[in-house]
């Protein structure tokens, strides 16, 4: 609680924090707004259905995942400040432990990830209610598992950023290496190493959490439902497939690894 209050004062009064969060929210809402106004009809494919319950959760989680890098940059800015202002050093002197320093930042990253989740939840709820012609509560709840998945994804993005900033300390190199890691560093590595490992590379596996909605599949699902009862195509996009569960757990594992490496760096660091 003490740590939370300390981080609260630092973060809440920081204008760059507010600006980046606002930027993130505005970009996300803008994309959502644009997508809800697109009229797209090819041979009876109605794209509007991606914003109906339950597909809206997948769609918005996918939109939100585009902007996770902003949250990562935010994480880098927040933590590199502590090195720049040498306030980590001061707080160690004043009696915080190295674990508490790390704990505070991990807490902030969690809150940022919860914010991302809530943003999608509230937007999804409003859009879904407006757009879905008639829906049952089951429809609404069906895709909600994308929310905790998005939370874990945002957490993975920010915790990887945390790791980079503990390595580089200054914001410039941290942000550059962080962004380059997602493209092209990891894609290049993926091209070299064997296929069996590629599936487990962090950026690859993290991005797999929020797959692109199957537009055509969703659009055609009505027809398919009419033709084939209990369509596979439909259920694949909505319910959590086993591979998504495994992926989520793997990303969670990555989150823990990022924190543990950060902790190793911090614990042995001379300030």
């Amino acid at each position: 609680m003490r740590i939370a209050r300390i981080e609260g004062i630092k973060t809440w009064n920081y204008s760059t924090f507010k600006v980046l969060i606002l930027l993130h929210a505005i970009l996300f809402l803008l994309i959502t707004l644009i997508s809800s106004n697109i009229q797209f009809n090819i041979q009876g494919v109605n794209i509007a259905k991606i914003l109906h319950f339950p597909h809206v959760w997948n769609t918005l989680a996918w939109f939100a995942s585009w902007f996770n890098l902003i949250l990562g940059v935010l994480a880098i800015v927040l933590v590199s400040n502590e090195f720049q202002f040498r306030t980590f050093r001061k707080q160690l002197i004043d009696g915080l432990s190295r674990n508490e320093l790390l704990g505070g930042k991990v807490l902030v990253m969690n809150l940022v990830a919860i914010y991302a989740m809530l943003l999608v939840f509230i937007t999804g709820l409003i859009i879904g209610i407006i757009k879905t012609p008639n829906f049952t509560l089951t429809d609404l709840l069906n895709g909600l598992n994308y929310l905790p998945i998005l939370y874990i994804q945002a957490l993975a993005y920010t915790l990887l950023a945390l790791l980079f900033v503990f390595i580089f300390k200054t914001p410039g190199p941290s942000i550059i290496v962080y962004l380059l890691y997602f493209f092209p560093i990891e894609p290049i590595i993926r091209a070299i190493i064997p296929e069996s490992i590629v599936r487990f590379m962090p950026a690859k596996i993290i991005s797999k959490l929020t797959p692109m909605p199957d537009f055509v599949g969703i659009s055609l699902s009505d027809m398919i439902e009419l033709n084939i009862s209990g369509s596979d195509l439909f259920s694949q996009n909505v319910s959590m497939s086993p591979s998504l569960t495994v992926t989520t757990l793997l990303v969670l594992l990555y989150c823990i690894i990022f924190v543990l490496i950060s902790r190793q760096i911090l614990i042995h660091k001379n300030f």
Binding site: I9, K10, N13, K90
Partner: peptide, 15 residues
């Protein structure tokens, strides 16, 4: 070493 954007009282609150 203090947070430049915080006022003195808030900086001391953190301490």
């Amino acid at each position: 070493y203090f947070y430049p954007y915080l006022d003195l009282e808030k900086n001391l609150r953190i301490v």
